[in-house]
Each structure stands twice: as structure tokens, then as C-alpha cells.
Amino acid sequence: MPRPGLPKLIATDLDGTLVRSDDTVSAFTHEVLDRVRAAGIRIVGATGRGPRLSSLTRSDIRAADFLVLAHGGWVYDVADPRPLRASRLSGPVLSALLDDLEASVGPLTVMVEALEHPGAPLWGTRTPDWRYEVVVEERTRSSCLAGDVIKAYACSASHDVDDLLAAARLVVPAEVASITQAGLNVIEICPPDVDKGTGLAVVAEAVGVDPADVLVFGDMPNDLPMFAWAGWQRVAVANAHPTVLAAADEVAGANDDDGVAVYLDRLLSR
């Protein structure tokens, strides 16, 4: 058990928060996270990355006890290959949703993530300015949406991502799909009731931790649901989106300055 005055569980976003702009995690950050775990505090990596990137995610946060993937749709205990949560969105529902959204904002470029095995390709049309290495298997939209998917990515040539997100939330009811953005110039469309807050709730229930004992770190709008859910402290990194900075209790250093690790190092030293 952690000593009094410390959280019982720490959840951190990865890209833009724990992971630096060069896609690396420093040795200092790994060392601090090892000390956090040794202090009896459970660690959760909470990311938009889908289960196809679980190996990379485990490498970036080696001390994690749990992984919350796909914005909360897939949840793993790292000691068990069977997911605690595995959510999918109906392809036909997604097709109708996209039709309604395009009627409002115009044409969209769409990719879907349908497969969970390591290194699985995305399907559809590669979105412009995608910054990460990924294999995109070109498919028609009808082919992509013939079955259920983990999530979809959509971008517009005429709308900024924040404007597209706002427009999508006006068009798409929350009971149909959960929509967010994680800094990739695309909105991400997930099953309903899927976000990092509901994903963390699965972990908290599994280990018997109250949200009041959870500390979270983040940088983008997809982190806001876990900021709303956690109660111990909500910490944004200095490079965070304005909405996340506004929702934070504290602001740590930027991801490129190992802000999460510096904050946790100080916390352990109190």
C-alpha cells in the first residue's frame, strides 16, 4: 500500500504527455515510474492507441499494471492476455453516422481500425499529415464498414480538427458513438460510453480503488473524461491543449522536459 498522502493509482496518457516529441521515453521517466510502482502505487497507461499497438505501449510504459487502450474501449491487466473490456462499434451504425456528418460538414477522409492483433493495418483512405508509421490497406468505405470496428478516424479538408469535433458532437448523439480528438488532426469515433474515464473505471473496479485516490496526467481533449472522473489530482503537461490546461488542477513541465516524471519524483520526495 502507498503511504498516506499519496494516490493509490496513477494514470497517464502517452503521446504528448509521457512520450516526448521524438517518440521516445527517457531513462529518467522509466526509473521514476519504477519507483512509483515500488511505493505501492498502481500505474495505468491510458492512450488512444488501439490494441494493435499494445506491444509498443508496453515498451513505452514498462512499469504499467494496466493498459487502457483505444480511448478506453479496450482494457488490459498486463498480466493477463484476455481484455477486461473489448468494445466495438457496428459498421452499419458507423456508416449512417458518417453519412449524417458529411451532410453537415462535407466530404471526409476516413480510416478504420478493425483488427486487434499486433501490427494490424488500418483500412480505408490514408488521412493527410498522419505522423506515425502505419500500414493502410486501401478499401472502399462499404468494405471497411461491413463488420464491427474498434474505432474510426475522420478528417476534413475544410474544417480544423477542433471545429470538426464540435460539429460532429452536434450531429452524432452520445448514445450512438463517442467522438474525441487526440492531436492527430483527425476526430476519432468510438463506441458509445467509451472514453478514458469509463476505461479507468474498469481498472478501478478490478482493483478496488476509488476515483478520489487516482492521479491523472494528460494533454489532449481525449484526456478530459479521465480528468472529470479522477479525484486526487488532474495534471496537464505544459504543452497541453487549452481545454486540458483549463480543466487541470496543476500544470507540470512539458513532455519534452519529462514533466510527468519530474512531478512524480517530487511527489515521492515529499
Results as ranks from 00 to 15, higher is better:
Cys190His: 15
Cys190Arg: 03
Cys190Asp: 14
Pro191Asn: 02
Pro192Thr: 11
Pro192Asp: 11
Asp193Gln: 14
Asp193Ser: 14
Asp193Pro: 02
Val194Thr: 15
Val194Phe: 12
Asp195Ala: 12
Asp195Arg: 13
Lys196Gly: 12
Lys196Phe: 14
Gly197Val: 04
Gly197Arg: 07
Thr198Gly: 07
Leu200Met: 10
Leu200Arg: 03
Val202Ser: 06
Val202Asp: 02
Ala204Pro: 01
Ala204His: 05
Ala204Met: 11
Glu205Gln: 13
Glu205Ile: 03
Ala206Cys: 08
Val207Leu: 00
Val207Gln: 04
Gly208His: 07
Val209Ile: 15
Asp210Ile: 01
Asp210Val: 02
Pro211Trp: 08
Asp213Ala: 10
Asp213Glu: 15
Asp213Phe: 09
Val214Pro: 01
Val214Gln: 03
Leu215Asn: 01
Val216Met: 09
Val216Ile: 13
Phe217Glu: 01
Phe217Gln: 02
Phe217Tyr: 09
Gly218Trp: 08
Gly218Lys: 08
Gly218Ile: 12
Gly218Gln: 10
Asp219Leu: 02
Asp219His: 02
Met220Thr: 14
Met220Trp: 09
Met220Glu: 14
Met220Ile: 05
Asn222Leu: 11
Asn222Ala: 10
Asn222Phe: 13
Asn222Pro: 08
Asn222Met: 12
Asp223Phe: 10
Asp223Cys: 04
Asp223Met: 06
Asp223Lys: 07
Leu224Glu: 05
Pro225Lys: 11
Pro225Ile: 13
Pro225Ala: 12
Pro225Cys: 07
Pro225Asp: 09
Met226Ser: 06
Phe227Arg: 06
Phe227Pro: 01
Phe227Gly: 02
Ala228Asp: 15
Trp229Cys: 03
Trp229Tyr: 15
Trp229Thr: 04
Trp229Met: 08
Gly231Phe: 03
Trp232Thr: 05
Gln233Val: 00
Gln233Lys: 13
Arg234Tyr: 08
Val235Leu: 03
Val235Ile: 15
